[in-house]
Design a protein around this nucleic acid. Structure first.
Lengths: 200, 200
DNA sequence: CTTGTTCAGGTGACAATGTCATCTGAAAAT
DNA sequence: ATTTTCAGATGACATTGTCACCTGAACAAG
């Protein structure tokens, strides 16, 4: 029956609208710009309504982060499954997905890699999503250099890519000072690892 | 004359007390725990007094970050000037100074590498301090591999060390998942760079 | 020494915001 | 048909950043 929605469907739609509104406000002006009142207004409900779906503001934001980490994990999985690219390029693309989030949605990126706050359920969801994303990265690295030494090199690559992205996001990686782009840094690193793994 | 303080001396002392109080509160519970009222109380003044020294809360926090970046720059300078250590160890120690801040004062570390906010003067002070710290790192790398290629490798090292520290601070670098410590990561990276620079 | 000025600091006030207690109405279960 | 459940609305409150205004003492100019 088109147009007929049950109570749980309506609640789910509201929850979705709340998350989308929170993400929009976050993109617009950072965490301080995410106001529960404004989130409610944009979702078409009142100021107290968000509390029917999230215990508090931290939990709402942590859930936004968890969803973003889930999408990242999915992106990396898709990149890994693409047979048209050689393993080294797949790794570059996977890391590029991370950096693209940082460039396009800096506040969201920051949130994704902050210590999750809020109620235990939200924290656990975010932690699990982060673990899944990292596992996908680990698999991509494993495809390149073998599962044996993958852990160590994956840790190196992930932390490096994150550092590059985070410093660029915060403006501390000005191109005129270092005359090197984030892509060049990652590419250099991937090459170094590829070479070292081969010679080891 | 002991005990006799002028007006400007008193004002300077208050400003210092405000910055110290803000840093303490930051360490205790993050940026949200830094309340201008509590900052004033701990500094022995009232709620509105901070506005005689800082235009707004953001400027106060940005000044705290600027001072921390200044101390970091000084630490790296000291490490570089120590003739007892070989260049590679000096580099390891310099990067270790960064990671130690992250471990001991995670909230301060986060603040140091966030986009500075507040009035232009505070932002400029923080930016200059960050530049100075990075220049010191650059010099340490230059001592190891020569000023020629130092820029590229310094960028690689700094971003990596920051990523390692930041992920560890935020809890996303759990040891049981990666079975590798931050020190091992940095050490591996320094060795790789050292080797690559030598062979280039 | 007197007088006017500067300025750190104090206080009242206000708006924004997170959060809770309470109420309501309709959907779902009985 | 009656009861229960629950998303949502609303009033209220404490906290907090910020501003306007006031005060008193240190300092300078005469």
């Amino acid at each position: 029956m088109i147009g007929v929605i049950s109570r749980v469907e309506s609640a789910a739609a509201t929850r979705r609208a709340l998350l989308d509104a929170a993400a929009d406000l976050l993109d617009g002006g950072g965490p301080d710009a995410v106001t529960l009142r404004e989130v409610g207004a944009r979702a078409g409900v009142s100021r107290g309504a968000p509390y029917r779906h999230f215990p508090d503001k931290d939990s709402l934001l942590t859930t936004v982060a968890a969803e973003a980490l889930d999408r990242l994990a999915e992106q990396v999985r898709a990149v890994r499954a693409d047979p048209r690219q050689p393993p080294a390029d797949r790794l570059r693309h996977a890391l590029s997905a991370l950096m693209t989030i940082g460039r396009r949605r800096p506040h969201l990126y920051r949130l994704m890699f902050t210590t999750p706050a809020g109620d235990p359920a939200a924290i656990q969801a975010a932690t699990r999503a982060a673990d899944r994303a990292m596992d996908e990265f680990l698999a991509v690295v494993g495809d390149l250099i073998g599962a044996g030494q993958a852990r160590q090199f994956a840790a190196l690559l992930l932390t490096s890519a994150h550092g590059i992205t985070d410093l660029e996001v915060s403006g501390h990686l000005s191109a005129d000072k270092w005359d090197i782009t984030a892509e060049e840094l990652v590419s250099t690193l991937v090459s170094m690892i590829d070479q070292r793994a081969r010679s080891a």
